[in-house]
Amino acid sequence: MTTPLADLYLSDVRTRMRGVKALGDGALAQLRPGEWHTALSDGGNSAAILVHHLAGNMHSRWGGLRGGYAPGVEGETPGRDRDAEFEEGDRTPDELRAVWEGGWTVFLDALDHLQPADLTGTLTIRGEPHTVLEAIQRQVAHYSGHVYQIVLLVKTLRGADWQTLSIPRGGSAAYNARLEAEHR
């Protein structure tokens, strides 16, 4: 029996987005307390700003879908102040971790409740209709982009002390050999 494409897609996007979150978790764990509010350039985003923005977007886009899809759901909540998400605040690392976790909980919970038939439903974002599939793909690109910004920011701040979150340089052959051994 074959698995319908929509089932495969939802399974894959759930796994991949948990991987994106894990990448962000690994980078944020390497920040020192005083570095959360450090940008690499004037006008650049700090990790704190990126975390605040991602969480704000996740709550706005996906909060209405946490229990599953319902027609007429708006993907931009009226109370969201997107511009405020880009203002440097004074939240502590623990507060920022809670903001990060809260946003991801909303997004991943919404993904977990979507059914294959929901992917063709309509979700409106700022008055623009999207299929749920389009909205997911939009956010996969958006969230991945910001998480990679966090990785670059933290890697730059850590310098030689950076702990890689993927295959270390010079480690590809050993990694491939381990994968091959696991799949025998």
Rank of each mutant, 00 (worst) to 15 (best):
M1H: 10
L5G: 10
L10T: 10
S11K: 15
S11L: 04
R14I: 09
R16M: 14
M17V: 09
K21L: 03
L23T: 05
L23K: 05
L23D: 02
G24C: 08
G26Q: 01
G26Y: 11
A27D: 12
L31K: 10
G34T: 07
E35F: 08
E35I: 04
W36Q: 00
A39L: 05
G43C: 12
G43E: 15
N45W: 04
S46M: 01
A47Q: 12
L50V: 06
V51I: 14
H52F: 03
H53N: 06
A55P: 12
A55L: 12
G56C: 14
N57Q: 08
M58D: 09
M58W: 08
G63Q: 07
G63L: 08
G64D: 01
L65H: 07
L65Q: 03
R66G: 15
G67Q: 11
G68R: 08
Y69F: 15
A70G: 05
A70P: 00
V73G: 12
E74C: 11
G75M: 14
G75D: 07
G75V: 15
E76F: 11
G79M: 12
R82Q: 15
R82N: 07
A84Q: 13
F86A: 07
G89D: 00
P93F: 02
D94W: 14
E95D: 14
E95R: 05
L96K: 08
R97W: 13
R97H: 11
A98G: 14
A98I: 06
W100M: 04
W100G: 01
G103Y: 09
V106D: 02
A110W: 03
L111D: 11
L111P: 01
D112M: 02
D112C: 05
L114S: 00
D118H: 06
T120W: 06
T120I: 05
G121K: 06
T122M: 05
T124N: 09
I125Y: 03
T131W: 02
T131P: 09
V132A: 01
L133W: 07
I136K: 03
I136E: 05
R138M: 13
V140A: 12
H142S: 06
Y143G: 01
S144N: 11
G145Q: 09
V147W: 01
V147G: 12
V151H: 02
V151K: 04
V154A: 02
V154L: 02
V154I: 11
L157C: 11
R158P: 03
R158K: 14
G159S: 13
Q163K: 14
Q163E: 07
T164S: 07
S166T: 04
S166V: 12
S166M: 14
S166H: 13
I167Y: 02
P168W: 03
G171D: 06
A173W: 00
A173T: 09
A174Q: 08
A174D: 10
R178M: 00
L179E: 07
L179I: 11
E180P: 03
E180F: 09
A181G: 12
A181F: 10
H183V: 05
H183I: 01
